[in-house]
């Protein structure tokens, strides 16, 4: 009987909608292919060469780029800087944005809530380079607003961007200011979709605020928390513009005093575009990619155990 039904349909005929669908997808697929995947593959390719812009003069050198890399103390320091930056940025931005989202959610019923929400999101849509230049002035040890405030309270006034210890924290402060808006909006979205009756049931069950947060709200927003953590990890390991602009990029020597803010991405940029060593930079990029991949997989592994999907 089944054959009778099948025979009414010609075999292997692809409906024209399929062609139409792929046809409509083609422009965006081409953009991705040309500007995203092809360069990525090409990058992996040139990391095995002593690359010259005149491609015919490039020499295949196998893994020696990686050998050079691993013997470079600066490479290891840049990795450490990157990890330091991520280790502070990821938990800080996740916790602060969740906190702000909880506060805003309480105030969501007020008419001015919308204004506050857009004010929190606003920094995220500003251009990084432009606001970084403004923050250079805020961080200025002598004339900056930040040290003026600290001085008013008789607190120590660090040198910020000019100090080997404080350059990185300064960059972190700016990055938090810039990135928290996005995460806050993501958390707010998750909080507003929480089933109201479940929260009310917990209230009737006598859950106080902290217990309610710990046992009900946190588990229920955990998918978004996971998403934010992954996003923040990738974002912080790839951070470039603000570090470049804040720590001397416009004057030619990005990376802070004594390489204190030379993260992996800064080192890659300098190796490639200042020292013109493209293949070495490609090898570093590949290592950064592997690092991010490993971290994300580890996070996924953890998330599968702790994230609750409704």
């Amino acid at each position: 009987m089944a054959t009778v039904i099948e025979s009414t349909k010609p075999a292997f005929r692809i409906p024209w909608e399929t062609f139409l669908g792929f046809g409509l997808l083609l422009p965006s697929m081409l953009v991705f292919l040309v500007f995203y995947y092809a360069p990525a593959v090409f990058l992996a390719y040139i990391s095995f060469f002593h690359w010259n812009i005149f491609a015919s003069q490039s020499i295949f050198v196998g893994l020696s780029n990686f050998q050079i890399l691993f013997k470079q103390p600066l490479f290891w320091q840049s990795l450490l800087n990157s990890l330091y930056y991520a280790a502070v940025m990821v938990p800080a931005s996740t916790m602060i944005s969740l906190g702000i989202a909880l506060l805003l959610r309480e105030g969501i019923r007020f008419k001015r809530g919308a204004i506050v929400r857009s004010m929190v999101f606003l920094p995220h849509v500003t251009p990084i380079v432009a606001t970084s230049i403004i923050w250079i002035w805020l961080f200025d040890p002598q004339f900056g607003l930040l040290n003026a405030i600290l001085g008013f309270f008789h607190l120590p006034q660090p040198g910020w961007l000019a100090s080997t210890h404080w350059a990185m924290p300064a960059v972190m402060i700016y990055s938090l200011w810039h990135s928290i808006g996005l995460y806050t909006v993501l958390f707010l979205g998750a909080l507003t979709t929480l089933p109201r009756s479940v929260l009310e049931a917990a209230q009737v069950d006598g859950a106080k605020k902290w217990y309610l947060f710990k046992r009900i709200i946190l588990p229920l927003v955990s998918p978004v928390t996971f998403f934010v953590i992954v996003l923040a990890t990738i974002d912080s390991l790839q951070s470039f513009s603000q570090i470049y602009t804040l720590t001397g990029g416009p004057h030619g020597g990005a990376g802070g005093p004594a390489f204190s803010t030379t993260t992996d991405s800064i080192l890659i940029y300098e190796t490639a575009f200042i020292y013109q060593h493209f293949s070495l930079a490609s090898a570093m990029s590949l290592m950064l990619f592997l690092l991010i991949l490993l971290l994300t997989l580890a996070q996924k592994w953890i998330a599968d155990r702790f994230v609750f999907y409704r």
Binding site: P195, S197, V198, E200, A201, A202, Q203, V204, D205, G206, A207, K208, Y211, R215, I216, P219, L220, F308, R310
Partner: peptide, 30 residues
């Protein structure tokens, strides 16, 4: 929480991430 009330909601409002045991024990754990 102080009114010592047991309430059953129309859509049940169970804690979706907790087991039945934990759902039942929630108020007493709190």
């Amino acid at each position: 929480g102080e009114r010592n009330i047991g309430m059953v909601f129309q859509n049940y409002a169970l804690y979706p991430h907790l087991s039945v045991y934990e759902n039942l024990a929630f108020a007493m754990k709190a």
